[in-house]
Nucleic acid binder design. Structure first.
Lengths: 322, 322
DNA sequence: CTGTTAGCGCATTCAT
DNA sequence: ATGAATGCGCTAACAG
C-alpha cells in the first residue's frame, strides 16, 4: 500500500500506526527483485585518457559499478575534452539522457552552475565530485576542503625547514584554467601565516606560467628560495627542473599522487604531497547514488575527503580504497 | 545444478560450458531471499567501555552491522577484560558458539595463535583487526603495518626540528603488555635512522614506565631532550606533563586520535599523531565477512590501513569513514 | 539420481 | 478503491 492513488487519510494513519507497532521494515532486496528494474546513472566527467587524476576517479567509479552491478546499476559515461566547447556540447547530451542519477564534476564554474540549475528540474539526484559548485546544500558533494588543504600546506612549510624565509608559490596553469580550487588553496596557504604572526621571517613571492610554456622556467626564479608551494598537481615540473639543474635544499609541497610526482617524492626532491584520493571520490560518488536510489537510505550530503599527507615513507603503491 | 550429490563429470562440464556461453551469473540477492538465512558473525574483542580505541573499533563494527542488517547479518559480541584470564574464559565461549564468521583482535600473542589453530578446524572464515598473528596467509587481516609506521615517525622526527640531537623514546606500558605492536614501531623508528646515515647528530635514549605509575615522570627525564616518540596511544601523558611543567619546544609524536591526544594536538603540544583509523578497521572487518559470506565474492585477504599523519590542521572531528 | 513445485517478500497487474 | 493473482530468480523439499 505504499501510495497508489488516493487513500483516505484515516487509513494511511492506521497503516502507519501498525507499521510502527510491528516495527515493519520493507525488504529492499525483495522489493528490487520484484521491480526487476535497472538503475541508470550518468557519469559526466572530463575525458580521462591523458589525465591521470581523472583516470583514478574513473577507476573508483568502475570499481563501484562492478560491485553494485549485481544490484542492477548501469553506468553511462559522458566524457568531454577539457574545454568549454566540448563541455557545452556534452551538457546537451546529458540533459536529454534519461537516467536515475547523475555523477558530475563541475570543472567550469559558471556553466556548471547554469547546468545544475536547469538539471535540478528533472528531480534527479546529483552528486558532485572533485569540487563543489552548489551554494546551498541542494546537491551532494564528495571531495576535499580546498581552503583547508592550503592551510595545511602552510603548516607543513612552516616547520619543515630551518629558519627559512623565502617561500615561492608556483602556479602552473592550463591554457583555460577552469576551477577555482587552486585559488582557494592559495588563500588557505596565506591564511595560515596570517593566523600565526609569530612566524615573522617568511617572505613570499609568486610565479605564474602556462603549462604549455614550461620552458620559461629558469634558475633565477629559485635563487634565494627555500620552499616551493605548487597549488595543483604539477609539482613534478618544478621538481624535475630543480633536479636537472642540481639545485638542492629546496622543499617542495604539492598535490596528487601522479606517477611523475611520486617519482620525485621517492627521489626525495618533493617532500610532501597532499592526496585527494581521487579513486575513493569516484567510488563514494557512485556509492552515494546507490545508497540513495537502490537502498533508499538517507545519506550524508557532503562527504569530505580527509587531507592526506603523503611522504615517501607512507606511500604505498597499493589500491587504497575505503 | 550447483553440487548436490554425485553428478557425472561429463554433465558438470556441459553445464559449466553453457554457463560460460550465456554469461550466466547467479543472482545472489534472489538466492539469499530464497535461502531466507541469517548470517551470524561473532565479534571477539577487548571490552570497549573504558578503552577509547576499542570503542571506535566497535563504532565501525556497529555501523557495518546496521548497514548490512538488511542482508541478514547478525552480530554476537564476546568482550573480555584486558587480561589473560578473561581472554581465556572468553575463548571457550567463542569456541562453542555456532556462527558463520569471526572478527577477532589477537591481543595476546601466544594464546591467540593457539586459539586460531584450534578454531580453523571449524572451517569458518576469520578476519583479524588491529594486529596480525597469522604467519601464513591463512586468515584475513585489516590493520596497519606497525614497523612502517615507526619508520614514518622517524622521518617526521628527522625533519620536524632544527639541528636537534636528543630523541627520547617514551614507553608507557600496561601492567600486562600484550601486543608486540609497539616493539615493531620502535624497530621501524630506529631503522629509519639506520637507513639515513647522513642524520648523524641524533642521540637516542629510552624510558619505560607503567601506566599505573605515571607519577614517576620527572623533569630530569626531559632535560636536553628535543623530541619525544611515544610508540603507543599514551602521548597525552607526556604532553600533559610537559604542559603542566611549562617545558616548551619539545616535539611530540604519538599514535591514535584519543580525545586527550587531540586536546594536546590542538594546544600545539603534540605535533603529530599517526592515526590507525580504528573505526574503519572495524567496518572493514565486518565488510570482509559480508563480502565473503553473503555476496560470496573473493576479497583481498590483507587490507592495510594507510599511515595517516594527523596535525592540528588536518584533524576534523567528523566521522571519517571510507 | 533427476524433474517438479512451493515459497522467500515484494510490486504490479487484473479482477472485483 | 481494494483484494487476489502472478512472477522477479532462486533454493529446498518433494515426488518420480
Amino acid at each position: 500500500m505504499h501510495n497508489r492513488g488516493q487513500v483516505a487519510q484515516e487509513t494511511v494513519d492506521k497503516v502507519n500506526a501498525i507499521i510502527e507497532q510491528f516495527g515493519y521494515k520493507r525488504n529492499i532486496l525483495a522489493s528490487n527483485l520484484a521491480l526487476n528494474k535497472k538503475f541508470r546513472f550518468a557519469v559526466f566527467l572530463p575525458k580521462s585518457e591523458t589525465l591521470e587524476y581523472w583516470k583514478s576517479q574513473v577507476d573508483g567509479i568502475e570499481k563501484a559499478a562492478l560491485e553494485f552491478s549485481k544490484f542492477g546499476i548501469v553506468l553511462d559515461y559522458f566524457f568531454y575534452d577539457y574545454n568549454l566547447i566540448s563541455f557545452r556540447e556534452t551538457v546537451k547530451k546529458v540533459m536529454q539522457f534519461e537516467c536515475d542519477g547523475l555523477l558530475f564534476a563541475p570543472i567550469f564554474y559558471e556553466d556548471s552552475v547554469l547546468f545544475l540549475k536547469e538539471y535540478q528540474q528533472k528531480k534527479i539526484p546529483v552528486v558532485m565530485i572533485d569540487s563543489n559548485v552548489s551554494d546551498s546544500n541542494e546537491h551532494a558533494y564528495v571531495g576535499q576542503d580546498a581552503f583547508q588543504s592550503g592551510y595545511l600546506a602552510g603548516r607543513l612549510i612552516s616547520f619543515a625547514v630551518k629558519n627559512e624565509r623565502h617561500v615561492l608559490i608556483f602556479k602552473i596553469t592550463r591554457e583555460i584554467e577552469s576551477t577555482s580550487v587552486y585559488l582557494q588553496r592559495i588563500n588557505g596557504f596565506y591564511s595560515y601565516f596570517k593566523d600565526h604572526d609569530e612566524l615573522t621571517n617568511f617572505k613570499f613571492s609568486e610565479v605564474t606560467i602556462k603549462d604549455s610554456g614550461i620552458d620559461q622556467l629558469n634558475v633565477e626564479m629559485f635563487s634565494d628560495v627555500n620552499s616551493v608551494f605548487v597549488p595543483n598537481s604539477r609539482a613534478y615540473i618544478v621538481a624535475r627542473f630543480l633536479d636537472e639543474n642540481n639545485i638542492k635544499g629546496v622543499r617542495i609541497i604539492g598535490y596528487d599522487l601522479l606517477n611523475e610526482n611520486i617519482e620525485y617524492l621517492n627521489k626525495g626532491v618533493i617532500d610532501f604531497l597532499i592526496n585527494q584520493r581521487p579513486e575513493q571520490q569516484g567510488y563514494m560518488g557512485i556509492n552515494y547514488l546507490y545508497k540513495k536510489l537502490v537502498l533508499q537510505e538517507s545519506v550524508e550530503k557532503t562527504q569530505y575527503i580527509p587531507l592526506e599527507i603523503i611522504l615517501k615513507e607512507n606511500y604505498f603503491p597499493v589500491k587504497r580504497l575505503s
